[in-house]
């Protein structure tokens, strides 16, 4: 579930990057790369686990699925937070500069 949720987040971020004219201003490329990087790494993790457990991998208990889903949502939130921190540090629109100069 974590892999699935992260892949969905990566696809949504990529669509936002492609369709938004202000992609550079909002650093949307970085957001999608954060999720694609994590998706690729979890995909490899999945391949190794599947090789070990085979079809048993898919017969997880409800509590395991719930836990994985909660982790997936939390990870998406952390990705968004990391992107926001990066955006504020880079400040491509110069919002902080203008605010500081005003004072």
């Amino acid at each position: 579930m974590t892999l699935l949720i992260t892949i969905i987040a990566a696809i949504i971020a990529s669509v936002c990057w492609y369709s938004n004219e202000k992609r550079d201003e909002y650093k949307l490329g970085v957001l999608s790369l954060i999720y694609w990087g994590a998706s690729l790494m979890w995909f490899i993790d999945f391949v190794f686990e599947y090789a070990e457990l085979k079809t048993e991998y898919f017969s997880q208990s409800f509590s395991d699925i719930l836990n994985d889903s909660l982790l997936g949502v939390t990870v998406v939130a952390i990705g968004l937070a990391a992107w926001l921190v990066y955006l504020f540090i880079k400040d491509p629109k110069g919002v902080f500069n203008r605010k500081l100069l005003k004072k």
Binding site: T2, I34, W36, A38, M41
Partner: peptide, 20 residues
């Protein structure tokens, strides 16, 4: 910079998963 975003993004989120 693309490779950096891919790697650091993945490492950050995977590190949190390991913490979880």
């Amino acid at each position: 910079s693309w490779l950096m975003a891919l790697l650091w993004g993945g490492v950050l989120l995977l590190a949190f998963e390991h913490f979880w």
